[in-house]
Amino acid sequence: MKRKIPVIITSLVGTVLILSVFFPPAERMGEDFSIFFDIIAVFAFFLGGGNLVRIHGNKIYKKARDWGFSAVTLAGFFLMLAAGLFKIANPGGIAADVTAQGSLFQMLYDWIFNPLGASMYALLAFYVASASYRAFRAKNKEATILLIAAFIILLGRTPLGVYATAWIPEQFSLMQIPNLAIWIMTAPNLAGQRAIMIGIALGVISMSLRLILGVERTYLGTDNE
């Protein structure tokens, strides 16, 4: 019973959502189900916050390994929470918007949270470089093709690529590096992407049917009913 009810709900909601694609009167029901999901999501935020406090609180209490990180996490969590809930140092007082300029919440967001996030994002540039170095080593035939294609595309996006092959006559313009880069992106690359997209679409339909038909139950932990 514990597993039958979720399967019945999944089948019902899935069927309605499929029908809403083809039968306009069912659109409303589909939208309602989406709203139900949003309502559940609101309650889940409490679950997330509760879990965070419990896990890190336990680590601090037990002085587990790296408990200092947990202390920083909880300090940050409670500081942001208090700054937002009580609108600490909010120029307009408790009635004003929490994100008002000058409020502690906004300052924490602008001067600590945002720069930290941006720093993490900036790491991506270095990781792209190290990943490219590994990917573009011509170890075999496929990797060599990848290397050549990547080299043409990189060169095609720079002024050097334009200058290097500007002398090629107009009737052979495809051989100019910028045009070659565009061709690689719009012909072989796009064809490959579309093939993957078709596969994904079929996979999504297949997975959805498995869920609706109740064949796929592993997400419920059901090996033994």
Binding site: G48, L52, F113, G117
Partner: peptide, 13 residues
């Protein structure tokens, strides 16, 4: 219980 835990809903955090 602590095998599966919530971290944050901020992508880079």
């Amino acid at each position: 219980e602590d095998m599966v835990y919530f971290v944050t809903q901020s992508q880079f955090a």
